[in-house]
Structure formats: structure tokens, C-alpha cells
Design a protein around this nucleic acid. Structure first.
Lengths: 225, 225
DNA sequence: TAGATTGTTAATCGATTAACAATC
DNA sequence: TAGATTGTTAATCGATTAACAATC
């Protein structure tokens, strides 16, 4: 009973989280899992998990739960990870190198197949078995290698230009790590990994004992279970 | 007219984005900006921006807009970035090193003051003027240096243990880059930077032209038990 | 069977957007 | 003043949660 209405972004964002934990369960030879158990581990409401999955099909068995490996297979199909997906990365700083080595995507058929940098002194370097190419070659390589996704790990000031190159080259999605809001046509999907914002917004929730009430005694009390 | 009700997470998450762009405007000597202009640049609804800001005070002037430097000052106060905030980082892989060098926080009074690693061969290394310490020293250092926030850039398998150490040491917030859902007490705030999920969920939106209509019908049949 | 758990509808909760009086 | 834009209320939209019949 697949209902391909409009699946909300929030739902799609949770699917990889489910997938990741299901893979762990599978590695531990656990065959079946209930929405209750998934929710407990992932801090999610079990009803939400059932509803999320039900958008895509009847994957569970009443009274039993979900078959782990079957659900893995299904989520991989839904996310379109059951077929090769080629990725290009621009920016060979520490972050770019970190991502190049992240092999998580590999087992999901997602593969970084090209790395670029604007800095001539970086071109020719080998990272993760890939020779760094000049960014000028981006468009041609994207087309040749049928690259669908671009990752941007360049400084904020350079990010929009790189995004423009990706769009021009025909990429369908961009994962942007640069701390800036990119402007792109509607049909190119942008996911922003904004850890600067994550970190700064964390500060908001830090209540400093010293200025709130008396002094630091609060903390000692509230810490213990 | 500050109303300190309950500010939603979504609102708090947008404040650093505003701040970032306001800083850019300030650097370009732009003195005033309207919610209209902000929204156009940041892909947000102007009404939303006005509402977000109005939670914290009357920062704008009718008919004029917002004074850029005044708004910067106010947002920094709201986010509690107007005072020093000390951060510790665990994990000296490429990602950890990338973050150590990210100096964005510095100008916001946020400062990484200690770096740890569980691997003895990494201990003693100097990264960004900081000597890498053994993770066993975490609790003591956190207390000594009054560290409020922990950043985790270790492999997923090791992340929970590090989180436990941070919690035990009295940290108030954690930014977790490891692709796993951490379990912590309610009073410790967790922000998850989940770029694996960002990337995998991006795949969902890639519609492959070649299979769009007729070919894909297989999938609908192969569903139930 | 009896107990467990799904899939789904209805109820609730929360966040975004539209609209406009106030006013600079 | 006339035009512009805020702050805020009301309307809309969307997402989460509760509840339960169906059924394994």
C-alpha cells in the first residue's frame, strides 16, 4: 500500500537514522525489532516510527514487529541506496579529507569519485586514492562520471561559486558544509550541515549558575541521579 | 517587551544564521536591514524573522528596519556569546583537527581550550597550540578549566563512552559528530551534527530520469510479506 | 487462545505565514 | 506628509502523539 503522497522532510531525515541502527542490530544477529524498541533506543515516539515506515509500505507484522534485514532492504530502496550514486567533493582541507575517508557511504553505494581544489598547490595530491583535480575540470568530470551529488567543504567566501559550478554541471543535490546560505535553483536540493550554527545555538542553552541565582550549588544537586 | 516564554528550538537554531549574515553586512558597512532583505538572502519568510526577533525584544524600528550592529549585539547577548564559553574536543582525526582550526567561535568568545584522544600515540601532539591530552584526564580538566561544552569527533563505537565522561565531568552541552544517537540525562543538551544522515537523505531526492515511469513498477508489487 | 504489536485515524500540539494596525 | 516596515494577532499549515481495531 505504497502511498507516494508528499513525504515530509522530517520523515526522510529519520530514515537514515533507522537504517543505521538496524544495521547495528543486524550485525548483532537480531532478527526482529518492534517500534517500541526502536523508539527507546533512538529517543523517538514508537507511533512516529510506525507512521514513518507506513508511508512507504506495510513492512511490519502485527504482534511481532519488523524483520530487521527486510526493513534494511526496504529503507535502502526508499532512500535509493540500492544503486550506485556518485559524489564529488570540492575542498581538500581537514574537513574535506575527513569526509573522503568516511567510508560509510561506500557500503551504501554512495561513492566519492572525484575531489577538487581551487588551490594549484593542492592539485595532484592523492587523497583516498583519488588525485585532486583543479576545480576548473569540475563540469566536465561531473558529466563524464555521471556525478549526482556535490559536497562543498571550501571556505564560506568561495562556497557560492562552487555551488554555481555544480549546478551548471547538472548535479542534483549538494551537501554544503560552508557556513553560508547558498542560492540555487529549486530543482537542486541543498542540505546544509551547519555545525557552526549547531555549536552557537548550543550556547543559548547554557545557563550559567553564577548569574542565575546564588552560586554554583545548584549544579551539585541536579547532577546526581 | 521581552517574553521569556518557551522559545522553540527552531527559533534558536535560526539565530546564528541571522548573526552570521549580519556580521557580513556589518563588514560591508551596511547600517540597516529589513526583515524583507534578510528573508530574501536567507530563504526565510520575513514574517518569521520578525517574529523570531520579537520573542526577545523590540529590536527594530517601524518604517526603517533593524540597525545591524545593534541587532548583532542583541543576538550575541541572547545566545550568550557575550561572555567566554570554554569547549573541549575529543578525537583528533581529520574532523577533530578541522574543528580545532575553525576559528569562527573565537570571535564569539567560544574557545576550544582542551583536546583529548584515547589513542596514546596521539597524546602529546600539538594541534592549534594545544597539547593533546589523554582522555583519562578529561574530567579533571573540564572542572579545572570550567568547560561547559564538549565536542565529540570519535568513531561511533566510542562516542557513548566519551559522552558519559563529559556528563560525569559536568558539561552542560555536547555537540556530537559521531553517527550514533547518544543517551544522556535530560539536563545535558545534545546537538547532533549528522552529516551521514544529511548525505543519505539527499539520495532520496535524486530522481533518476532513466527509470521514472514505467520501469519502476516492480517495486510496488514486491511489498507485503 | 492470549499477548503483543502493527497500521491508521483522530486529537493534539507546534510552527509558519498572512494580514494589518501602529508608527517611524 | 507618504511610504515603508515593524510587532503581533489570527489563520493556516504541518508534524507529532494517542488511541484502538485488526491481526499475527
Amino acid at each position: 500500500m505504497t502511498k507516494q503522497d508528499k513525504i515530509s522532510e522530517a520523515v526522510v531525515r529519520r530514515l537514515p537514522v533507522y537504517l543505521r541502527y538496524l544495521n547495528e542490530l543486524s550485525a548483532s544477529d537480531i532478527l526482529t525489532v518492534s517500534s517500541q524498541e526502536l523508539g527507546a533506543r533512538l529517543n523517538l515516539n514508537p507511533a512516529q516510527i510506525r507512521k514513518d515506515l507506513a508511508y512507504f509500505g506495510d513492512f511490519g507484522r502485527k504482534g511481532v514487529g519488523y524483520n530487521v534485514s527486510y526493513l534494511i532492504e526496504k529503507i535502502r530502496q526508499i532512500l535509493k541506496l540500492d544503486r550506485p550514486l556518485y559524489v564529488a567533493l570540492v575542498g581538500t582541507g581537514n574537513l574535506g579529507r575527513a569526509l573522503s575517508n568516511y567510508n560509510t557511504y561506500l557500503k551504501d553505494n554512495m561513492k566519492i569519485v572525484s575531489i577538487f581544489d581551487a588551490d594549484p598547490s593542492k592539485v595532484g595530491m592523492v587523497i583516498n586514492n583519488l588525485v585532486v583535480q583543479p576545480v576548473e575540470e569540475l563540469a566536465q568530470t561531473v558529466k563524464e562520471k555521471n556525478i549526482a551529488i556535490g559536497i562543498i567543504t571550501v571556505p564560506a567566501a568561495a562556497a557560492q561559486k562552487v555551488a554555481d559550478r555544480f549546478v551548471e554541471a547538472g548535479v542534483r543535490g549538494i551537501l554544503n558544509f560552508a557556513p553560508t546560505v547558498l542560492r540555487t535553483p529549486e530543482d537542486v536540493r541543498i542540505h546544509q550541515t551547519d555545525f557552526t550554527a549547531d555549536l552557537l545555538s548550543l550556547a543559548y542553552y547554557m545557563n550559567f549558575d553564577s548569574e542565575d541565582t546564588t552560586k554554583g550549588t545548584l549544579e551539585d544537586e541536579s547532577l546526581v541521579d
